[in-house]
Each structure stands twice: as structure tokens, then as C-alpha cells.
Amino acid sequence: MLPHEKALVKRLANEPFALLGMNTDSENVEALNKRFKEDGLNWRHAILGPPSKAAIPTKWNVQGYPTLYLVDAKGIIRKFWLGSPGDEAIDAEVDALVAEAKTK
């Protein structure tokens, strides 16, 4: 996931697109921030805490990791994946929604 996400963020840097990482590790914010920097994860991450305790994954009923929601420019959920559908599938869906956002 991570190498592909880096490429995705870089490729769409100037497009109406954002990747939001919903991180569920148990390390504290400082440790995670350091690790993200070392790994070059230069997109925003919500620091949620471990799955068993995290409020948003509990509320959203996240059943496995990764879980992905793709939301269009109007805020509508357009895709949901439990487990990655593969890099190509993600690219195709994201690109289609970015194109849609730019024509409207």
C-alpha cells in the first residue's frame, strides 16, 4: 500500500485530491510523526489509537485493515473497500472522480 500511496499523492499533487491516513497504531503522536517522516509519508494522518480503543473505527465498524472509503468532491461516498482492491483499481477510481470534479 504505502509505496503506491506515495506515488498517488505525488502524481495528484496539483489536482483536487487528498489522501487521509487514518492511523491505528499504538505509538504516541511524536513517535508516529517521526516514523512518517522517515518513511516519506507526506500526507495527513488522523492519529486514532489502536483499533480496539479508537473511537472512529469503532463507530464506523471498521472490520479489517486496510479499509478504504473514496469520497467525491461533493462529499458523497463513491467506493468502499474492505482490504485493498489493488493499486490499479484505486488509481482508476480516483482518476475518474478527479476528472469528474474538474468538469463540474
Binding site: 487528498a18 492511523n23 499504538s26 503522536v29 516514523r35 489502536p50 479499509t67 478504504l68 473514496l70 467525491d72
Partner: peptide
């Protein structure tokens, strides 16, 4: 939610953009 710099943000801050929300962890 709070981000890796301790800053608060909302999903709605991103209106007008396509957003990929990715629940993940290194664990």
C-alpha cells in the same frame, strides 16, 4: 481528528476535493 502534528481537522475541510480515506496501521 488530530493529525500527526497535533492539529485538529475535519473531513469537511476537504470539500471540493476527492478524498481517499484509508484506515491503516503499521502493526
Amino acid at each position: 481528528a488530530s493529525d500527526e502534528n497535533g492539529a485538529k481537522f475535519k473531513l469537511s475541510d476537504y470539500k471540493g476535493k476527492v478524498v481517499l480515506i484509508d484506515f491503516w496501521g503499521y502493526w
